[in-house]
Write a protein that binds this DNA or RNA. Structure first.
Lengths: 211, 211
DNA sequence: TAGATTGTTAATCGATTAACAATC
DNA sequence: TAGATTGTTAATCGATTAACAATC
């Protein structure tokens, strides 16, 4: 779709712009300049303008940016204007917590199934779904093509499951398992390594010790 | 403690080194060169050597790095050699899921309490703890000094709670709420913005469309 | 029009990679 | 010793910031 390659650093900042613009929208703010926004977000105005101009000129000289318009445009860039189908693989604590979190649904991410290997969980209701067994996954995906798989599994079984998912047409994996998955180039993997995040916090706690 | 300032990019990579070294340790590998490790991790050997040398010379010319030693040293740098006390604020789906996750404990993060505002949850057992009311938090923290607070709250109440936590001596916040917290400079905030991670995935799904 | 603010080019800064002397 | 590989300096690359002409 895009011809130019946008740097990962820019992309990682887009959701934050989107959030601030959504807040401004709630506050009924019509327009904002890169300078005002930069003060709110604690980034440079220059960076905001550079970032946005990767995707086109959304502003107007002498005026700034129309909040509603910019919010909608960034939403489109992030693919939030279309519905994305998801399944959860691993109905443990985290898997069930994510399933029960309603927020994703509001942003256009629709949960279509939740799977586990544990037969004790078979049929257990989670939200408006029932936990299914992973051996029924291929048949399920044939009937219901799904874009995103959320992997909330122990690390030992994550790679094997990723292979199965890719074979069955999954195009993106939101990976919560503590491993780096090996997948074909056209499959998107977004990692959430919670323990690594906590270690980073721990580092700062130890090193920035003010004593 | 540290005099030189280490770049955030380097710090974010340390937990991943730590993980790979832990795996090598499990595989009974004694020594590894930066070149071998670089191939495993898909980074440059140069980056590994540069990163490690921010903290001192852990290797030996002609030999490489001793896996057990390097693993232990990085653990120390990350502050994993000491026990960190934590509380969870917000005993919703995510809060309870994190409480039930045993992995943090094994890495030296000890959960000492879990709190919520919802009176229906009062006394509910989670792991070996019982959910307490947030109004008892100041008294609790006076008796039990805690380093880290895990914020798993709706965004609306997160800032207010952060203020209370800081007032009562919390030194670090692991923030799962979808807001940027405003805290004093000496308080460490590590954000886990799950919805932003999912939006990044969504972006890649839309833009890298191979069709 | 004059003032404001963008879009964009140029300058700076920092992070990554390459190269190699030091040394085990 | 010769070979291997680090620690570290220098070169390159990319990202951020500054500056300003374009323009609403």
């Amino acid at each position: 779709m895009e011809s130019r390659e946008i740097s990962r650093a820019v992309i990682k900042r887009l959701p934050r712009y989107y959030r601030y613009l959504g807040d401004l929208l709630d506050e009924k703010v019509d327009r904002i300049s890169s300078n005002e926004l930069s003060q709110k977000m604690h980034v440079t105005a220059s960076q905001i303008r550079q970032d946005l101009n990767n995707f086109g000129g959304f502003g107007q000289q002498g005026y700034g940016y129309n909040v509603a318009f910019l919010h909608k445009e960034i939403g489109k860039i992030l693919g939030l204007d279309v519905v994305h189908s998801m399944i959860i693989i691993g109905a443990g604590n985290l898997g069930q917590a994510l399933a029960n979190y309603g927020g994703f649904d509001r942003k256009g991410f629709r949960l279509e199934g939740i799977f586990d290997v544990n037969p004790d969980l078979k049929g257990k209701p989670v939200q408006d779904l029932k936990i299914q067994m992973v051996n029924s996954l291929p048949a399920f995906l044939k009937k219901n093509p799904v874009e995103i798989a959320i992997l909330t599994l122990p690390r030992g079984s994550a790679q094997e499951m990723a292979d199965i998912l890719v074979q069955n047409g999954i195009r993106a994996i939101w990976n919560f398992a503590h491993v780096d998955l090996d997948t074909p180039e056209n499959v998107i993997v977004e990692n959430v390594h919670l323990s690594e995040s906590l270690m980073t916090l721990s580092y700062n706690l130890s090193s920035r010790n003010p004593d």
